[in-house]
Nucleic acid binder design. Sequence first.
DNA 1: CCTATGAGGGTTTTT
DNA 2: CCCTCATAGG
Length: 842
Amino acid sequence: MSTLFEPDAPTPIIVHDAPGGSGGGSNRGAGHAGPSSRLTDGLNPPQREAVEYRGPALLIVAGAGSGKTRVLTHRIAGLIETREAWPSQILAITFTNKAAAEMRERVSALLGQASEGMWISTFHSACVRILRRESEKAGLTSTFTIYDSADSRTVLKRIIKALDADTLGFTPGNAGAQISKLKNELTDVDAYARSANMSDPKQAVFLEIFRQYTRTLRSAGALDFDDLIGETVYLFRAFPETAALYRRRFRHILVDEYQDTNHAQYSLIRELTRPVSRELVVEMENKGVLVRGLEDETGIIPGASLTVVGDSDQSIYAFRGADIRNITEFERDFPGARVVLLEQNYRSTQNILSAANSVISNNFDRKAKNLFTTVGDGDKITGYTGYSGHDEAQFVADEIEALHRKGMAYRDIAVFYRTNAQTRALEEIFVRSALPYRVVGGTKFYERAEIKDAMAYLIAVANPLDELAIRRILNTPKRGIGPATETQLAQFAETNGLSFRAAMREAGSLGLGPKVTNAILQLAAVLDQAAAMLVPVQADDAAPTPSDDPNAEPDARGGVGAAKVSEVLTFLMTESGLLEALRRSRDPQDETRAENVEELVAQTKDFEKENPGSGLVDFLTQVSLVAAADDLDDSSGTVSLMTLHTAKGLEYDAVFLTGIEEDLLPHKMSANEPGGPAEERRLFYVGITRARQRLYLSLAMTRSQFGDTSVAMPSRYLQEIPADLIDWRQSPGMANSRGGTQPRALNARRDGRGPGQYGYSSDPTLPPAPRPKTEWPNAIGAQVRDNGDLELAAGDRIRHTNFGEGRVSQVTGEGTKRVAHVQFDTAGAKKLLIKIAPIEKL
DNA sequence: CCTATGAGGGTTTTT
DNA sequence: CCCTCATAGG
């Protein structure tokens, strides 16, 4: 009985006879020896304190590269080694699944044994685990589906259309963003209804959208990303005795990247760290839950010990509801909390750190923190200004090749950018240069239409309530079931109080044509057969509903004798005719699509191998929760391309920060938002601090977007780096804006601090003084350049200020966007925007 | 019900 | 530029 309420059954939870303890479960103040020196050797004093400190709350302010992962893993290992905690009493929250896996591995390595029962996962994974276990209390199926943003979008699109809400300016995008924001604040429909001003038609309609969205997801047995957190909080608040079980279990909670937590996540942590009241302790004891040794002298179980790690300078997820105050006000939230500051950086050279420090110091309203290192200055930062995004990409490719020739492995090099759209130019050039690269994140495998289709089949089997999944596959492959039939089915279901799925089985009584009726019945049969495959063979009389026993695994989660995910998927793909349709298709792209589906089957087999005992729902969960950074394979010998956001937490020997331009960094969408430019600066800071040895900053004078090209200005943040740290191969300083007479740097200046010049201020707190243009090593010339009327044709010889002489091979584009393709005698092939290139005809 | 065609619109970042 | 959506014709 003692394990009945134990959230993770196989793990022993008998704390009171832990060796090394003198009676108190947590050993707090019991004079324990502390972690062995093996776990603290080689740490600097603050790191050591962060590992050894014991108390209710600890905030580790960890600057970039200050060894926080090391501190966290050693802290966890120390807790276990000294027997202050069983592995099962530890809950560690990381930002990505990859970080979680790495942390688990490192803790196990430190302890020399696998650490069974430890929960190391992301917020979302942990919540899914809790919600599936407590699904009944939360009013959910244990096989609930997790909707990604695309799914939410589809639902919202339907609702907005039905309500004609687009006339009021609602789009799936903005409505979804608003709903997400509310959920992150733990505001549900009812709470919103109470606060909304119903005489405002916009708010009234939004309320209706919100209400219908919530209802749709409910009836589909689905949760969106935000619900995963919010529903867990609601569950704990509504069922104190359930919350008590988790509060009793997790005695040490550690949260990484705390600066990026939102209000819902903060509330979840608060719920988990509350003490368990006397009454509930008694109640648990009566039910056979082991609590002895956990209570204090007053009979309550004190709140768990909380450790958070973060750096407010790296807070870059405000758009997702992250509230920087969670970390800045930690000491107020948790009175008596100890704060440890880690400032020594073990990653980067001093030049890179100086640049980072100097940039971030422009954010007012922050606690002073200065990263330092003892490894020396290192190389200067390399700067480059291309004429176009392609030119910039070519520079990146050339430099990577140079680094590679000097012995740097491709896998130690990364290229970052602000928006995903920027990958295009980079990829084109990389392919042409035969550089091995991979784009991390971006359009992922699981976002491809055919994969979403295949997944929808699996979801329809796992969660028959999920109408969205069923509707997606209803006519995929083409079966002649069109929108009209779909509506009829939905109506039939509605009037007869059936689920959509049940209505399909009754298709015979709808009076549809024989061909359509047959198609529907056949699909329903295929899904039913697949569902039957998942029922464990020996449990012939078991009802397919989840039982009361939290340890019982529902059928779709893979009972003994149940079919494997790969078998079910293969069955579905064959019997539904999807694979056949793709193979038979004339469209050459369908061939790759069929291969992708086969790749998915292969992935399910991998999953089975790596997660024995897991079932269909586990597979679906894992797929839903993979983050961009998760599929980063360290062993691949390729250059990594990713956004600045996904770069967080990673580090590389050489880093290229591209597109350091106004409107891109800071992005134009954030320029007007309060706190926008400061957050963009932190993003730049995060990018800079990823580099160990070499840092490159690049930008372009023109950038094409949506097909047309416009002039780009250097980012205001570039001026915040002391000039002597950057070695400009091609400086941005002298190129002129369209017809302008001022240096570009002036145009970039928006804070009223007066004219600045590139690379000038070595002390960012002082107003910049003018500096002669001639100091630019690569100055192009001060004259206003406008070659708008320069006529060029293939075969012409030209001279370029930097590239020397060359021959025009081709001229493309029109008007101000004419581009000359030039084969230079020494500098190779380049594309130049004729209007602004520093060229003359010979 | 399916397919081809053209117009229109859109992107910041992501669990 | 690329993707989605609406429309018309098969």
